[in-house]
Amino acid sequence: MNAVRRRALLAVPVAAAVARDVAAQPAVEEDFAAAERAILAGRTPVAGGIAIDMPQLSENGNSVDLAIKVESAMTATDHVTAIHILAEKNPVPRVARFALSPRAGRAEVATRIRLATTQTILVLAETSTGQVHRASRDVIVILGACVDGG
C-alpha cells in the first residue's frame, strides 16, 4: 500500500520500500466491485441519507480521518444495522464494517483509514427495514516529499 507516496525521496531504504509496497497484498484479492456486490446481496442501493466527512486532500495516506453520519431514527423497528467502508484502490477494498443497534442512539461513527492512493471511498449503510443507503466521496492523497521510509 502507499507505493507511490512511500517511495523514498531518495533510493536508500530499498528493502523497506519493497517490503512496504507489497505489504498489503492479500492472499486472495477481492476486487472493489465484487465487494460491493457481496454486501448489496441483490438489493438496489438508495442514494443519499449518508454524510461523509473526510478531507478532500489528505496529507498522508497512512491516516485519513473519516466520519460517517447516517440519517436514522435508530428505533427498535427502524435503525441502521451496519455501516461499511470500501476503498476503491486499496489492496483490500473492504476497510471496515460497523455493527450498530438502537442502543447506539445515533448512526454516527468515525475512524482513521489507510489509503494507497488518490481514490473513491464508498460507504454503504444497511437498515433494519432491508434498505441499503449508498454514498461516495473522492479523496486526493498528497505525495509527500520528506519521507524516510520509516
Binding site: 471496515a96 443497534s101 442502543r103 447506539a104 442512539g105 461513527v109 475512524t111 483509514i113 489507510r114
Partner: peptide, 25 residues
Amino acid sequence: EEVFRMDLSPGIAANPYVEFTTVAV
C-alpha cells in the same frame, strides 16, 4: 448487551481510532 462492534481490516490506520455513540441507560 453488545452496543457496538467493528470489523477492522489492514486498511485501518495504525494505533486505531474509533468514535461511536451509545445511549446512557
